[in-house]
Design a protein around this nucleic acid. Structure first.
Lengths: 342, 342
DNA sequence: TTGTAGGCGTTATCAG
DNA sequence: CTGATAACGCCTACAA
């Protein structure tokens, strides 16, 4: 006596003494009103007794909807993503959808494979959090009518709906904060320029520096080739080998900021004594560093939740315009920023 | 002309001029050897031209396998879980399986709902990382033949296969390290005792203290009701209100250790000057704290990967014995532990 | 209000 | 080696 298989609708119907069709109608909220009350009760009782669970797969085959959506992201172990995923899941689950997650490791080929595999599973749509600005795959899929919502990024030359944090405002707030403290030599360690956020934040930095009436010194900008501690350190070292130490650095994200801290330590530079530092994202635990990092808080959970809502909306009406929602971000001043040394 | 729907096997067959059955065989690695080479080529060409993707749902309906597994965990935003999930996914994806993730928030009712919903989707098995030692749902499901592998936990009175870190050894290493430094008054802030890890670590602590020939002082044990910073702080305060400050504290995990650090700061106790502290898990960024936390590194990714392998194994042969795999953990000495004050 | 018939896309089984 | 047929579990016309 191995595990009795799940009961089918047919068995429920038999037990209730009705035709399978009637059972189907009774158990389906949208059609149960067509069934006589007493019959309804019988069927429901039978279903309960057998612990009947409709087979979502079979249902999906008929209805051509899987009630599932795919989430594509670079790497779940990057602390940026769990809250986003959680937001997506909470909203989607409440609507009866299941979430399939796939890690691309930023490898376009892998992304392609996973995308296909998810499509084979008939997902009704995608939430995509991978980062590249150019993305043939997404551009074409979107053109073909695949439902996609982007989070934390956009794709060049393609009107794909997206939900993003306000990079521009975040950097502006950071720079304004530093200017207010009296800084005039403010550097930027930019993120990879083939990512939407890397680019947006660099542009925002340039804009903010100009708005503050400061000189735009190209030597004060370094580019990291990844949003990582190691790349942040490498980029900052490059900057420091070409120019004098700035009095403050705005990093494109917290990991890069961590790399900057390493370089400060390397060179015996105190933070914020000798150099102030601002990160981006408000990564968990970043407030427990020494010094606690001033950074820009991004509402990742809400971004995920909003993206899910948007996808749901588009699943309902495919012809909705491809809007882009920008969520506000907040500077969180902590101990890594202070007035420049007299 | 809206998005042309995905081509079906029938269309591929027509285009290749063969029967749908033949097309099916040709496209199926395990049966393609039954098809003549030239036919095979034709079918494959047709499939490629149409960009055919087999409908996994339809396949699942027929084969009664969904090639998907459910992962139940408390909360993805707890940094403990992403690496586990990643390990699970990597192994499962390589075997052609898709992973469905559900967050239970440690709510048994929610867990029940999600479990049912995943079963309705015909998942072939479960990886469960929720924490309670008593779990009706899992116990019964396992008895009914549902394939389940536990990670980082066990369930009382039920032989469910599991993959866990070696809690006992981890705590033993921590205590031995402290003893070696010269500590004799070593406290423990235990985790919730209705979780497998909370209990195991407390027991291991008692054992280790005894093995070291130290006096077992009940006042040196406090219980947190959750693996959180707040609970850790609350528990330690309770301990300190009842007895003198120990010279070292072993926390049941890093979050609890964080709470302990808060209390140290509150009371002006230096760490490691006045009190040494050891955590558990080697949570990301915990090495960047001041002081960098001495903790026990648990191979979370490997635990997830191993659990997935085990599940795969059991999917193949349901009658395998319910083994428990214990993976080694390592103490990582950092700055939060030092010899006791003269 | 309930039943009949047919099909969603695929694969298993059997015959040719 | 290939084709015909039925079936997986459910849902949706349509008919009764």
């Amino acid at each position: 006596m191995t595990g009795s298989n799940s009961p089918t609708l047919r068995e429920v119907a038999e037990r209730a003494g009705v035709h399978i069709t009637t059972a189907s109608r009774a158990l389906n909220p949208s059609t149960s009103s067509l069934v006589r009350a007493s019959t309804l009760r019988r069927v429901k009782a039978a279903a309960r007794e057998l612990r009947y669970q409709p087979n979502a797969i079979a249902r999906g085959l008929k209805t051509a909807r899987s009630m599932s959506v795919g989430v594509l992201l670079p790497d779940l172990t990057n602390p940026l993503f769990p809250p986003i995923v959680r937001g997506v899941e909470d909203v989607l689950a409440a609507a009866g959808y299941t979430t399939l997650i796939a890690n691309t490791d930023n490898d376009p080929r892998r992304q392609g494979t996973l995308f296909d595999s998810l499509r084979a599973r008939q997902v009704d749509g995608f939430v995509v959090a991978t980062a590249r600005r150019e993305d043939e795959l997404l551009t074409e899929a979107h053109r073909e009518g695949v439902r996609i919502v982007l989070v934390n990024r956009r794709v060049d030359r393609a009107d794909i709906p997206a939900v993003i944090g306000d990079d521009q405002s975040g950097i502006a707030q950071a720079v304004a904060h530093l200017v207010e403290l009296g800084h005039t030599r403010i550097g930027h360690v930019a993120g990879p320029q083939n990512t939407a956020t890397g680019l947006a934040r660099l542009r925002a930095y340039r804009q903010a520096v100009e708005d503050a009436g400061l000189a735009a010194d190209p030597a004060l900008v370094a580019r990291a080739d990844g949003f990582t501690e190691a790349e942040g350190a490498r980029a900052l070292r490059a900057m420091l080998s070409a120019t004098a130490v700035p009095t403050a650095v705005v990093a494109a994200n917290d990991m890069i900021a961590l790399g900057c801290l390493d370089v400060f330590a390397e060179r015996g530079l105190g933070c914020p004594g000798d150099v102030s530092l601002v990160g981006f994202n408000d990564t968990p635990f970043i407030d427990r560093l020494t010094p606690a990092l001033t950074t820009v808080r991004v509402p990742h959970y809400q971004i995920g939740a909003e993206a899910a809502r948007m996808l749901l909306e588009r699943l309902g009406d495919p012809d909705l315009p491809a809007k882009v929602i920008t969520l506000p971000v907040t500077l969180v001043p902590r101990a890594s920023t202070a007035p420049p040394r007299g």
